[in-house]
Simulated assay, not measured.
Amino acid sequence: MSSGDARIGYETFKNRQQAAYAALVALGNTATDGGLDKALAELIKLRVSQLNGCAFCFQLHLNIARKLGVDQVKLDLLATWHDAGVYSERELAALGWAEALTRLDGTGVSDAAWEAVRKLFSEEETELLTITIGTINTWNRIAGPFRFKPLVASKESA
């Protein structure tokens, strides 16, 4: 994301595009409402936002992850998750699935990526992971071009 001034502010977008905002929030909530672990969902949202360079979404989900009590070491090492040695098998599979779905190159998602996620997640859980990944990618593609400014939490609220 560019360091320039916001093109459209988050609050402006939220107020002006209320239906789209509500739809995206509702879509995002379906995964955790459906049983997807909230901490895992936040790790996914953070990694996808890293890949897409979305500072707004990264900061927002970092604040949420901290409030949920996600291990600080996992947050610190997220950019190097492949080699960090601190993530569970399920977290590794989910992060791999998130990268596969975010880095689409026109050839589709490989059978190897599908098999890796399905080894540790049920079909329904894989659907919920996929909804989470698709939703955060959409948010990144809104927040990035509009240059939403990160919402930095105060030390009291973190």
Rank of each mutant, 00 (worst) to 15 (best):
K74H: 10
E99D: 09
R118Q: 11
D76T: 12
T32G: 04
I44D: 02
D83M: 15
R16C: 14
R141Y: 05
T12V: 12
D105K: 11
D105L: 12
Y21Q: 05
I133Q: 04
L101W: 10
A143Q: 03
D105R: 13
K74N: 09
S110H: 03
G108P: 06
A94G: 03
A143S: 10
D76G: 13
R7M: 09
E156R: 12
L43Y: 05
Q18K: 10
L151Y: 15
V70G: 03
F56K: 04
E91P: 04
E124T: 11
Q59A: 11
L101F: 14
T12E: 14
L24I: 09
T138V: 11
V109M: 14
K149T: 15
A26W: 07
E124G: 12
F148D: 05
F148G: 03
L75D: 08
K38G: 09
Y21D: 05
L43E: 06
A94D: 00
I142V: 12
R103N: 13
T102C: 00
A20P: 06
T80I: 15
S3M: 13
Q59H: 08
D33R: 09
V25N: 10
G96L: 07
I44G: 00
E123D: 15
S3A: 13
V48H: 04
D33H: 08
V70K: 03
G134I: 05
G35Q: 00
G134W: 02
L77R: 11
A94I: 01
R141N: 07
M1D: 07
E42N: 00
R16V: 13
G108M: 09
R90H: 09
